[in-house]
Nucleic acid binder design. Structure first.
Ligand SMILES: NC(=O)c1ccc[n+]([C@@H]2O[C@H](COP(=O)([O-])OP(=O)(O)OC[C@H]3O[C@@H](n4cnc5c(N)ncnc54)[C@H](O)[C@@H]3O)[C@@H](O)[C@H]2O)c1
Ligand SMILES: NC(=O)c1ccc[n+]([C@@H]2O[C@H](COP(=O)([O-])OP(=O)(O)OC[C@H]3O[C@@H](n4cnc5c(N)ncnc54)[C@H](O)[C@@H]3O)[C@@H](O)[C@H]2O)c1
Lengths: 219, 219
DNA sequence: TTCCACTTGTGAACGATTTCACAAGCAGGG
DNA sequence: CCCTGCTTGTGAAATCGTTCACAAGTGGAA
């Protein structure tokens, strides 16, 4: 199915563009389900709240496979995006912290459908260690390195309290992990070759709060 | 305590800067707890993974109250940031969807400490409506408008399944709400004067996945 | 075959954000 | 008092991302 791998400019796709790829892919999958075979940049743009030029510029990082006058083949574009986003492999994910956020994430099925399999869960609460979350046994914090290696983990989700986050990721990085998704309100320090994304609900709320006060003042 | 309100350039602070303000504030509160009275831009920068120049440029949007040779007063800067982020008022928040993510968010205390009070919870599951989440009664979806008005809601958190999100926020917007924090994987369409932030774990994971495949290919 | 309506791909203009570089200000010591 | 070491505040430069504008393909209709 994938002879699309003729991607040229793997060079350095802007981060903002990569994030939009995720969204485009989401829409394309909707279109595919609806039996639509081809989309124009304008359609994707409208769906995603950007402009047609933006969509075309984004996609041009991947080569050129649109058909002028017609648009893009939904199937082909889906394939290319899945490929560039690395969604054709299964990623083995370890969850650190089986608390409220951790369990909510664990039980969220769409991750699995996307190829992110949570194969490891770590916690240090003696009441939790040894019990099962879904099909996965919760292992103690001291087993961290061993679990990451055994389970051939690719990616770690941090959902432990902020004060312990840095110490844990240090060990995670030492164990060879190259990608971390962090939910703790802590600014993690990692080597440059480890990819890190922070999800901070506080930052989002506070930026909304700022927007609200601005609106209020301007009237 | 706040005669810092002499803020000049409320003009148009870049979004990226506002988000960093949240982080700076977080660090400043740590410093305050540790009894540190003043910080230099370089210290904040190191803590937050940016550069000293970036920190100073950011803060310059708020006026100038650093002391050359010394740095910034922790207390004063904390006050200014809290003010510009609108954290000195209490924000009344409505939570739409008391599912897994919704309840995890609800039970997260730091929000309340920051001045975000979840005063309204809406769900449409008959088994949930009428029960309490923490101290708040879960109300039916049909009561949405009425609840938002009665509770004088400022801000709405969307934690319902994607397919119903748009319809709900349409009603929320019609009820006069100007700020929405969206967890559903749906691209919401709102009027320009409503502030929207999306939190998408899928986008984050996929961008990590992209980073991982890049690393792998480059060796 | 030619024409037409449509849409892509992309250099170039634009706008925004980040980084640089340095004059100016402050505190403390002599 | 002046000198020294340190740090801010900020124009100007560099970088990065978005938007514009249009030549060049494409399929279909006549
Ligand atoms: N709940 C939310 O809505 C929310 C929102 C934003 C951020 N967060 C952040 O996510 C993280 C988790 O939040 P939560 O609400 O799930 O908290 P929680 O207390 O419910 O869960 C934390 C879990 O981590 C485990 N843990 C603690 N120390 C550990 C260690 N050293 N090794 C392994 N496991 C350890 C605890 O046993 C617990 O199960 C926190 O950093 C929090 O700030 C949560
Ligand atoms: N759980 C996660 O980790 C996670 C991660 C990313 C995104 N999300 C998104 O967050 C949203 C909620 O996820 P969840 O895991 O909590 O799902 P969930 O099914 O546990 O909760 C959804 C809740 O919304 C309620 N609901 C449904 N329709 C409603 C309506 N019309 N009005 C009011 N309430 C309604 C349901 O009764 C349920 O309580 C989804 O959009 C999901 O995609 C969840």
């Amino acid at each position: 199915m994938n002879d699309f791998t003729s991607r040229v400019a793997d060079a350095k796709i802007p981060d903002a563009t990569v994030r939009r790829f995720s969204l485009y892919l989401r829409y394309l999958e909707d279109f595919e389900r609806s039996g639509i075979n081809s989309v124009a940049s304008g359609v994707l743009a409208e769906r995603g709240g950007t402009t047609a030029a933006q969509v075309r510029k984004d996609l041009s990082f991947l080569g050129s496979f649109g058909k002028r006058g017609l648009g893009y083949s939904v199937r082909e574009l889906t394939g290319v995006l899945r490929d560039v986003l690395g969604l054709d492999s299964v990623w083995r994910v370890a969850l650190l912290g089986a608390g409220r956020i951790g369990t909510a994430l664990f039980r969220y099925e769409p991750f699995r459908a996307r190829g992110f399999h949570i194969t490891t869960v770590i916690d240090n609460d003696p009441g939790k260690v040894g019990t099962r979350l879904g099909g996965v046994m919760i292992r103690g914090e001291h087993e961290l390195e061993c679990a990451l290696t055994e389970d051939r983990t690719d990616l770690v989700i941090v959902a432990v309290p902020a004060p312990v986050a840095q110490a844990l990721v240090d060990r995670v990085v030492a164990a060879g992990i190259r990608a971390v998704l962090n939910y703790a309100p802590a600014q993690l320090r990692l080597p440059d070759d480890v990819a890190l994304r922070n999800v901070s609900m506080t930052v989002e709320l506070e930026s909304l709060s700022h927007a609200l006060t601005r609106v209020r003042r301007c009237r």
